[in-house]
Amino acid sequence: MITKSIKNNPMKILVCISKSPDTTSKISFTENNTKFDEAGIQYIINPYDEWYALVRGIELKEANGGSVTTITVGTASDDPTIRKALAIGADNAVRIDAEAKDAFFVAKQIAEYAKDKAYDLVLLGKETISYNGAQVGGMVAELLDLPYISLASKLEINGTTASITRDAKGGDELVEANLPLTISASKGMAEQRIPNMRGIMAARSKPLTVVAPAEVAETISTINYEMPPEKSGCKYVDANNMEELVDLLHNEAKVI
């Protein structure tokens, strides 16, 4: 849904885009479980970034003018996902040329790039589906000294005020805040857009600027990975014997 009626000022919007392994990917590790095995992994744009944050940013631009820039901390292997974001409708893209080591590293790079560019909105996904940290948004907001509204499922702009519906304990709440803002998107903020042929062609000539990374001290390090224990197998219970299921849940599994 495109914001109608009120004509807003054109906004400068920055959307943070990351890649994540397609959920159907089989996850495995190498080097004694210390490295994620990328062989055969299909990468997609992190769904929250693509479906919600990016599309809502583009809708706001289409309604009011302004610009949508995407930013990604990653290596040249991220370029296909960045081109897809351009094909969906971003105007230009920035890639900070470094392996995305951890959330603070990523946030610091984004903040360094954004700090003197006066974005009205910095949009992110609510979390990456690979590590589910939900950390980058809060960190960027802190580094830029901006309010942070997380888990937003609706975003409307009225002049310089944003009205946002966000997740609250067990329900939703409607909040208001003045631009500039950092907002993380959860499901509902927009509808997924499939890039069309024109978009894909146009994306080829849109600017993708590669920027050298800033120095950042490492505060955490991943030591190793572990696969969860295999399920010991499903125990079947007869559909007419729910007393037995209750007994198993109470006495064997001890969960009720």
Binding site: I220, N224, Y225
Partner: peptide, 17 residues
Amino acid sequence: KVNAFSGKAFSFVKINS
């Protein structure tokens, strides 16, 4: 210890600061 890859694995992360 934290979940990683949508719960398909665990990762062990050390805090150095």
